[in-house]
Computed example of a mutant assay.
Amino acid sequence: MIKKTSFSIAVSLFLLSGCADTNTMHSHNKIFQSVNYEQAQLVQDGKNKQYCVKCGMDLVRFYKTSHAATSEQGNKNYQYCSIHCLEDHLGEGMVLKNPKVVDVESLKLISVAKATYVVGSSVRGTMSRISKYAFLKKQDALKFQEKNGGEIMDFNSALEKAKEDFKHYR
């Protein structure tokens, strides 16, 4: 049996999530997760700073589900298109500190400890059929939930949901 690589898993989930729809592939503004480049807070260095460290997806295009963290030594910043890719990196034994997530309302990176997640809304997710969006203010999360459904939870619970994406591959 051949073990799937992280990249092939990411591509498979990307295609399954419906993100590969040709109507959304060519326009940043046609999907909820997208922002203009000027609105995105990118924390990585180098020529690939705009791309998810795990799957290579465009962080501006999938910004509203973006997460970031620092290496254990504190000398490298990582940014992910989703909590799914953050979990994939953690699942490889990475030790990360200072995890952050984009607040959907302000578009600023906030500590995951302060975030309220809406999981499983009708708004399409990134790298998973189960969407996971974070908010700094609980009232913003409740407003989003009222309009789009989903379940309110904290980061650790949302991370557990992301781990379920991998239970068949590990």
Rank of each mutant, 00 (worst) to 15 (best):
residue 2 I to S: 15
residue 4 K to F: 14
residue 4 K to M: 15
residue 5 T to I: 09
residue 6 S to L: 15
residue 7 F to C: 11
residue 7 F to K: 15
residue 12 S to H: 11
residue 18 G to N: 08
residue 20 A to E: 12
residue 21 D to Y: 07
residue 22 T to I: 14
residue 25 M to Y: 11
residue 25 M to H: 09
residue 28 H to S: 15
residue 29 N to K: 14
residue 29 N to H: 14
residue 33 Q to L: 06
residue 34 S to V: 08
residue 39 Q to Y: 11
residue 45 D to Q: 12
residue 45 D to W: 09
residue 46 G to T: 02
residue 47 K to N: 14
residue 49 K to D: 07
residue 50 Q to T: 10
residue 51 Y to M: 06
residue 52 C to E: 00
residue 52 C to V: 02
residue 58 D to K: 07
residue 59 L to P: 03
residue 60 V to M: 02
residue 61 R to Q: 05
residue 61 R to K: 15
residue 62 F to K: 01
residue 63 Y to N: 03
residue 68 A to L: 04
residue 69 A to K: 00
residue 74 G to S: 09
residue 76 K to P: 01
residue 76 K to R: 10
residue 77 N to Y: 06
residue 77 N to Q: 10
residue 79 Q to E: 10
residue 80 Y to E: 02
residue 81 C to T: 03
residue 83 I to F: 01
residue 85 C to H: 00
residue 86 L to N: 00
residue 87 E to L: 08
residue 89 H to G: 05
residue 90 L to I: 10
residue 90 L to C: 08
residue 92 E to G: 14
residue 94 M to Q: 15
residue 99 P to C: 11
residue 101 V to L: 07
residue 104 V to K: 03
residue 106 S to K: 13
residue 109 L to K: 05
residue 110 I to K: 04
residue 111 S to H: 06
residue 112 V to A: 01
residue 115 A to H: 01
residue 117 Y to S: 04
residue 118 V to N: 01
residue 119 V to S: 04
residue 119 V to A: 03
residue 120 G to Q: 02
residue 122 S to Y: 09
residue 126 T to P: 00
residue 127 M to N: 03
residue 127 M to D: 02
residue 127 M to P: 02
residue 128 S to I: 03
residue 130 I to L: 10
residue 133 Y to M: 05
residue 133 Y to V: 04
residue 133 Y to W: 08
residue 137 K to W: 11
residue 139 Q to P: 07
residue 140 D to A: 06
residue 142 L to G: 04
residue 142 L to Q: 12
residue 143 K to V: 02
residue 144 F to N: 03
residue 145 Q to I: 01
residue 145 Q to E: 05
residue 145 Q to A: 07
residue 146 E to W: 07
residue 146 E to Y: 08
residue 150 G to Q: 01
residue 153 M to H: 08
residue 153 M to T: 02
residue 156 N to M: 14
residue 157 S to L: 14
residue 158 A to P: 03
residue 158 A to Q: 01
residue 158 A to Y: 01
residue 159 L to C: 04
residue 160 E to I: 12
residue 163 K to L: 09
residue 164 E to G: 12
residue 165 D to L: 04
residue 169 Y to P: 08
